[in-house]
Computed example of a mutant assay.
Amino acid sequence: MKINCNFDRNKKLWIQVGTLDNIIKILSQGMPATISDLLSFLSIPETKSRHLRIMMRLLSCIGIFKSNVTPSGVEAFGLAPVSQHLTTSFPHSPCSSPFVLFLLDHHLVDPCHQLSYWFRRSDMSTTPFEMAHGKTFWDFTGAQPEFNDLFNKGMACDSIFVMDVLKHVGREAFKGIGTLVDVGGGTGLTAAALAKEFPGLKCTVFYLPHVVNSAKKIDGIQYVGGDMFLELPPADVVLLKWILHDWSDEDCVRILQRCKEAIPPKEKGGKVIVIDMVVGVGSNTQTSMETQLLFDLEMMILVAGKERDENEWHELFVAAGFSDYKITSSIGLRSIIEVYP
């Protein structure tokens, strides 16, 4: 996800997300747009013409857009490769716009301003997010419907991206599975995509009761509400897609122990599939490492979780009582980890 890396590196805090999103929608229609065009389309006063040009030239300089001079000598702007991924019209790639809009939301940015105060405190029980908003990330999400909707759309977007990649790589991990529980499976998009890609696979989405009860149900997918720290529905395989990085080592061990209780022995096909980052592993080592570390910082700020390297994953699996694991690097920044009881 080089997109995230560019936004973070180039001071995402002062780029107004709503305006940027609307500009991308305008440029995705295919024709380059001049500053006059953008002023008109966005209903921005003419007095802000120079200021909009400043922003557009900067975003072009850092590769978000591209700038060209028309035959009549007027500067016009179009989509660059990065911003093309934020549209629904870009071929052979799911739109990343909902995911990026979630990452750039001010509720996620504001806690960054608490870091200097947070580092001076010896108390580890409060995150910068909680300092900024007075609630944990999960309590805040449950109490703010608009933010919760933004979060769900971002995670659904990520599920589409992951499943799009799994059509081409990483398929072996899911072959031959009879039943699967997607823990923290949100609205069920991942489970539905897996069931479609692997006929005969029966999928259950397991999430918090209030989320499951309000989710729009997908035909063929079973929904079960509960607490992953207490008990999981039995299945051949438990899927944890981008779940464990939200939690401390102690909590991860508890979650993995519940997973181990829910699956059969290895010789009967039992395993846990973890889709998460393995820091230092990626298709482009330098770019991947940089973005993985940015996500590591994000987890520290939001939820007291972290991204883990292979040694840290190994320690978790051993502590939870698992016997072996296999890592397949195949989903950009993330890997598929098959964990065996």
Rank of each mutant, 00 (worst) to 15 (best):
F161N: 10
L150A: 07
N148K: 13
L180Q: 11
D164P: 04
A173M: 05
L150R: 15
H168E: 05
T179W: 14
V162R: 11
K175A: 07
M163K: 01
M163Y: 01
L150T: 14
V165M: 12
F161Y: 06
A156W: 13
F151G: 01
V165W: 07
G178Y: 13
C157W: 04
D164H: 06
R171A: 00
G176C: 10
G154N: 02
F174E: 10
G176S: 13
G170N: 08
L180V: 15
V165S: 10
N148P: 05
F174H: 08
R171K: 15
A156V: 03
G170D: 01
G154Y: 05
S159R: 14
I177M: 07
L166Y: 08
I177F: 01
D164A: 13
L150C: 11
N148F: 12
L166K: 03
I160G: 12
D149F: 03
K175H: 09
M163R: 00
D164V: 13
V162N: 09
E172D: 15
L166T: 04
L180E: 02
E172T: 14
H168T: 01
V165F: 06
A173D: 06
M155V: 15
F161L: 10
I177G: 06
D149L: 15
M163N: 05
F161G: 08
H168F: 09
G176H: 08
F151N: 06
A173K: 00
F161W: 07
V169Y: 15
C157R: 14
K153A: 12
I177V: 13
R171Q: 02
G178D: 11
H168I: 01
M155G: 00
D149V: 10
S159H: 06
G178Q: 12
C157K: 10
K153W: 10
G170V: 00
G176Y: 06
K167E: 02
A173F: 01
G170R: 05
G170C: 08
V162H: 13
T179M: 08
K175P: 01
N152G: 13
M155E: 11
C157A: 14
D149T: 14
N152R: 15
L166N: 03
G178T: 14
V165N: 10
A173N: 01
A156I: 00
V169E: 02
F161M: 12
N152Y: 04
D149S: 14
V162S: 07
D164I: 09
L166S: 04
L180A: 06
